[in-house]
């Protein structure tokens, strides 16, 4: 069983977000980066569980520069067998998906797993695009994945319940919370990560289809105004005139 897991690099959840170049670029200065949690906790760990049960291999794939290597090595420390980094700066979902699809299509993977979204751009697009570009079925927002021979049974969260889907042959899946439990790498894994293959391959030259014009931060939280519990008139006046919600 050959499993490909897409790994993206995102700012740590506690990172302070700011922009440079006239609000067109994310300011990476002083920011600590982590593996996108949906990629790590759910897609990668479920991939590893399937590999362990079925005697397969897990390869991770990322599109990025050498700055991606530390987080890729963490994926190797958690248990992936090998890693591929496509040497290009990620620009938009299409470019990333296209680079991954171009690499994956010649390598005969049984499944391509990714997180349901990255926690920075929240695009939820890469998985679907990879599937389309590789002409494979795509199951999104999956919470459970079982494989029996060539049949994969996948559960998805739908409004008010669960949908069960069956796929035959290779497929692409985006993993949601619940698919697996976070694995903390052990010291041996960390040591072994240095000797596992991290192959850097040149980009196929896919280009972005979109361009970021600008970013802006949400408005800062304003101070809380306390109104005396007895003073309903004041409260209503504030809600009407200042907050303009009634």
């Amino acid at each position: 069983m050959k499993i490909l897991v897409c790994i993206s690099k995102v700012p740590d959840t506690t990172a302070k977000i700011s922009f440079t170049d006239g609000d067109t670029k994310f300011n990476e200065a002083g920011v600590q980066f982590i593996i996108n949690p949906y990629d790590e906790w759910y897609a990668l760990v479920r991939g590893l569980e399937l590999k362990e049960a079925n005697n397969g291999t897990v390869t991770t794939i990322s599109v990025g520069g050498p700055d991606y290597d530390p987080i890729i090595r963490k994926a190797l420390a958690i248990g992936a067998d090998a890693a591929v980094r496509i040497d290009a700066q990620p620009t938009d979902s299409y470019q990333v998906a296209s680079e991954i699809a171009n690499y994956a299509k010649d390598n005969g993977y049984d499944m391509v797993l990714c997180g349901k979204e990255t926690i920075d751009y929240n695009g939820s697009q890469v998985g679907g695009m990879i599937a389309e570009l590789m002409d494979l079925p795509y199951v999104s927002l999956a919470v459970k994945l079982e494989v029996n021979g060539t049949i994969a049974t996948i559960e998805r969260d739908v409004q008010g319940g669960t949908e069960v889907v069956e796929v035959s042959g290779a497929f692409v899946l985006s993993a949601s919370k619940g698919m697996a439990e976070q694995r903390i790498p052990n010291m041996r894994g960390i040591m072994q990560a240095r000797t596992k293959p991290l192959t850097v391959v040149p980009a196929s030259g896919s280009s972005a289809m979109t361009e970021v014009v600008s970013y802006e931060l949400p408005p800062a939280k304003t101070a809380c105004k306390m109104v005396d519990a007895e003073d309903m008139d004041e409260l209503i006046s504030l809600l009407h005139n200042e907050a303009k919600v009634i």
């Binding site: 530390p70 090595r73 963490k74 903390i184 960390i190």
Partner: peptide, 17 residues
């Protein structure tokens, strides 16, 4: 070093959990 950073993250995750 990268090892120290990885070990730090791993121990933090364990200690919090």
């Amino acid at each position: 070093t990268e090892n120290q950073t990885m070990v730090q993250q791993m121990v933090r995750d364990f200690a919090e959990k």
